[in-house]
Design a protein around this nucleic acid. Structure first.
Length: 630
DNA sequence: GTAGGGTTAG
């Protein structure tokens, strides 16, 4: 296949090769397979005998078996069916096996993510009279929390109290984590404070880290940092996880410099070594800000510290390169990771597919998609959505539609994003009827349209001269948060004015204040361009000068719209002043403004002396390339 | 001798 040939070519010349041999320093033990995983379980009785045998004799060799059994339980139970049979056997034993054995079984089931089964086992344990302990309680609470049913976790806690089982710091950390998972940070804070105040347990690093994670999820980085300092003062040493949590949060909030500061504090003041996770967060943050030199520096640091990149680190690089349009380099990175013994996963390839889609190279995107099977990977909902998005954005609904059906046939459930992508694709090619059918179909499949979906539908209707339909749908939506969304309004105002219904656009715009909505710069921009489209330069100018007073500064787009408007309306005397203003504000001309200006200079309606100023306002070409691949 | 926390993608 051509793509495979390409992959081979790219790897040879790739500059990341200079790090070769350093990232992939995998310990050989990674390749030693656990022999027990080859054991096939015949019957559960055999399994039961293996696990319970040591409890009926106490010789030294049996104690060794017992020690080995610790691994056996987790390793041998590889499916729910075995676990069920074993549990059934155990509950029928006389005398009953110890709670430890039950806990191990529960833990094995929990590790397989069969949370509700774990809870069912727990209930059955109580029925048959196994005396549960704090370990049992903790496992079961974790199951509740993982299922986003933390309240039930608290019920279990109450049960524990009744049974005189004393909860410990693990119990409360699990519950705290459950609240964090459910975004109930306020409740988490209350619990955390209560634990300290009532001395129910002594918080340790894990508990602090959990609370810190909750605060970070809520965007409360500062409080998270305060808590980090507090734990330090309380003599509870933060570790690499604690620091990485905050570093990641800062990076996600684009506060990479703060993250780097914290990183330095961790390494140089605390002597805590960063790990691959810490570096991955920083690299991700730096990639998002296109700070390629520093990405390169981080990679070098990892090399020096002998910290191997993992699939997430590589995927971060692949994704960043793809978003920069450097898809070939992304392929090189994928080849490199394979060479170094890290297998790319479906996430890695989704980024690559998206990269080709963004460049409109759909046949290459498709080849990567078809190639997944060869690597033992299966496309997931996101893979399909990415490829569908590529086809739809490139107006190729003929390819998208069968793929969409294929996805459903393969047992994949399109989500609200998939539907939104398809809707956008259908509207783009003018197939409004099919789009509306799909819009109603998605609800039949329990996919609730979100703001984005509605915006696509309203925009699609407006662009296809169905403003009236758009407006009636908008009113049908009722008085919910969707029609108090300024973005949705902006789409409607734009749609109405573009289809020549400026009066409706004006009514919508003027109605904003009544609704208590503040127009944003995009709203002003579409309204101004609406006025200019109709030659209403005066009204456009009024709005243009009013927006600043109303606390919304015009941006580069506003100036370009306004400039194009006055050029089209032959108001040449205003041009120079506007250009000066743009220069003063550091704005630049877009491609259509430049070409329009040049046309007017060519036909002498504008003076050629403006060329110097225009030259100043043309943006410098070319985006900085990631230097770690130059 | 079993239990609790952190990283990637539309």
């Amino acid at each position: 296949m051509a793509i495979q040939k390409n992959l081979a070519c790219f790897i040879v010349s790739h500059p990341l090769n200079k790090f070769k041999g350093s990232f992939g320093t995998h310990s050989p033990r990674l390749f030693i397979r656990n022999p027990s995983s080859f054991l096939r379980l015949g019957t559960s009785i055999c399994l039961l005998q293996r696990i319970l045998a040591p409890f009926h004799s106490r010789s030294s060799s049996d104690r060794r078996t017992l020690f080995n059994n610790r691994r056996s339980m987790l390793d041998l139970i590889t499916n729910l069916d075995d676990a069920l049979k074993l549990f059934d056997e155990m509950t029928h034993r006389q005398p009953l096996p110890s709670v430890l054995k039950f806990n191990q079984l529960l833990q094995a089931v929990t590790k397989m993510k069969h949370y509700s089964s774990s809870i069912a086992f727990f209930k059955q344990m109580n029925v048959v009279g196994v005396p549960v302990d704090v370990y049992t309680i903790n496992i079961v609470i974790k199951c509740c929390c993982q299922m986003y049913r933390t309240n039930e976790g608290f019920v279990i806690l109450g049960f524990a109290f009744k049974r005189l089982v004393v909860p410990n710091v693990c119990t409360f950390s699990t519950l705290l984590h459950g609240l964090v998972l459910e975004d109930r940070v306020l409740k988490a804070e209350i619990l955390f404070k209560k634990l300290i105040k009532e001395e129910l347990c002594e918080p340790n690093a894990i508990m602090y880290s959990t609370m810190i994670k909750g605060l970070c999820n809520f965007g409360n980085n500062n409080t998270a940092i305060s808590l980090l300092k507090l734990m330090d003062r309380k003599g509870c040493e933060p570790n690499v996880v604690t620091y990485s949590t905050i570093i990641d949060s800062l990076c996600k909030d684009k506060m990479v410099d703060d993250a780097l500061k914290l990183f330095k504090e961790m390494v140089f003041h605390k002597g805590i070594l960063p790990n691959v996770v810490t570096y991955t967060s920083l690299i991700h943050g730096l990639c998002n800000l296109c700070r390629w030199d520093e990405v390169s520096k981080m990679l070098k640091e990892m090399e020096d510290e002998r910290i191997a990149l993992n699939v997430r680190t590589y995927s971060t690089l692949v994704d960043a390169l793809c978003k920069e349009g450097k898809v070939e380099d992304a392929e090189s990175v994928i080849n490199l990771m394979i060479e170094r013994g890290t297998n790319p996963n479906i996430v890695t390839f989704n980024s690559l597919i998206d990269g080709y889609c963004l460049r409109g190279e759909m046949s290459k995107a498709r080849k990567v998609f078809d190639f997944l099977g060869f690597r033992g990977l299966a496309a997931d909902v996101m893979t399909y959505s990415t490829l569908l998005n590529g086809y739809c954005k490139n107006s190729n609904i003929e390819e998208a539609m069968p793929l969409f059906h294929e996805m459903i046939k393969n047992g994949m459930k399109p989500d609200v994003i998939t539907y939104s992508i398809m809707l956008e694709g259908l509207f783009r090619v003018g197939r409004c009827k099919a789009a509306l059918e799909l819009f109603y179909e998605m609800r039949a499949h329990n996919q609730v349209p979100n703001e984005c979906t509605y915006t696509i539908v309203l925009d699609g209707l407006c662009n296809n001269n169905q403003v009236d339909e758009a407006l009636s749908l908008f009113h049908l939506m009722g008085d919910n948060k969707l029609n108090s969304d300024i973005f949705v309004y902006t789409v409607l105002i734009d749609g109405a004015s573009k289809s020549g219904k400026l009066d409706i656009a004006r009514i919508l715009f003027n109605g904003l204040t009544v609704k208590g909505l503040q127009p944003d710069v995009r709203t002003y921009n579409v309204m101004i361009s609406g006025f200019l489209r109709e030659g209403l330069v005066g009204e456009a100018r009024v709005l243009f000068s009013e927006m600043e007073e109303r606390g919304c500064s015009p941006n580069s787009v506003t100036y370009n719209f306004f400039l194009q408007g006055i050029l089209k309306n032959q108001q040449h005397d205003k041009v120079e002043m506007l250009l000066q203003e743009m220069d003063g504000k550091g704005f630049s001309l877009d491609a259509s403004s430049v070409s329009l200006l040049l046309d007017h200079i060519k036909d002498r309606s504008l003076d050629a002396s403006l060329l110097k100023l225009i030259g100043k306002l043309v943006p410098k070409d070319g985006v900085d390339a990631p230097s770690f691949m130059v």
